[in-house]
Nucleic acid binder design. Structure first.
Lengths: 138, 138
DNA sequence: TACAAAATGAGAATGGTTATTAACTGAATG
DNA sequence: CATTCAGTTAATAACCATTCTCATTTTGTA
């Protein structure tokens, strides 16, 4: 039960009411790709009235602590991924939907050289697909 | 000289003053990753007074016509890539800078299956790097 | 030149995100 | 158990990139 508390403490974050609630909401539902707005709505719906500002703060704090990862695939909105393990994304353009691809499925070969004074952070792959268009004629 | 005019006509776009100017600005300087604001500034600096609204319209029209490609790597701003050939990106986090990686350099293996009713649009790879932190001690 | 359709520009409107600041809480201390 | 205070939160204002609106201008064609 205090799992979330420990999680937060280990991340150097005080387990406040709001942070605990948001963490439960985020991490107890499997891997997800969420926007701040969605998290806020879900929190309110779950009778955890949190301000939108706090949702933003918390999401960024969680990201800095390595509990979340920011994903930029499309558009101007920011999404957060609760899956911080090595993986990639399948993006369905016409549905605006993102699906995880486990990291061990795909392989990236022939990486370019990285200068000595730099270090690799991560390799992100987005496989973009869309539904085939109806071929009305023929 | 009429290269840009032909380019625009072939894309189904009338070669208006603004579109011609912006096209020259975008495509005669090698491959670039630009924001609407930057294009607007450059246009004004080049004595081609274009409104910001027109810059946005034009960038989207060019994108639809396949002359540009939208790239979403980081942050809330939209960037457009003048390189529409097959290639990937190297992103230097601490400089907020994007560099092209030619498409034939890297290879992505073991792609996941794509359902029959869907088609692959593109595979985007972002190699994220950062400068090594100064190790003040030791 | 005249005309209809397309394009443009100025500024208002929108929407997501960040900043501000006063009130509140958690947890350590006496 | 009360006190204290750094850390946290909430309401709302500010911000910024982008989109919308629509009157005006330009373009291609006759």
């Amino acid at each position: 039960m205090t799992d979330v508390n420990v999680l937060l403490r280990d991340a150097g974050l005080r387990p406040t009411r709001q942070r605990v609630s948001l963490a439960e909401l985020l991490f107890c539902k499997g891997n997800r790709h969420v926007s701040a707005e969605l998290v806020h709505e879900e929190a309110v719906a779950a009778n955890v009235p949190v301000s939108l500002a706090t949702v933003y703060n918390t999401l960024h704090q969680f990201t800095e602590a390595g509990l979340l990862r920011e994903v930029a695939i499309e558009g101007t909105k920011t999404y957060f991924d609760t899956n911080t393990t090595d993986h990639h994304h399948l993006y369905i353009e016409d549905e605006n939907r993102v699906i995880d691809i486990p990291g061990n499925v795909m392989n990236v070969a022939d990486m370019p050289e990285i200068p000595d004074d730099m270090e690799l952070v991560r390799v992100e792959v987005v496989v973009r697909v869309r539904h085939k268009k109806e071929t009305a004629c023929q």
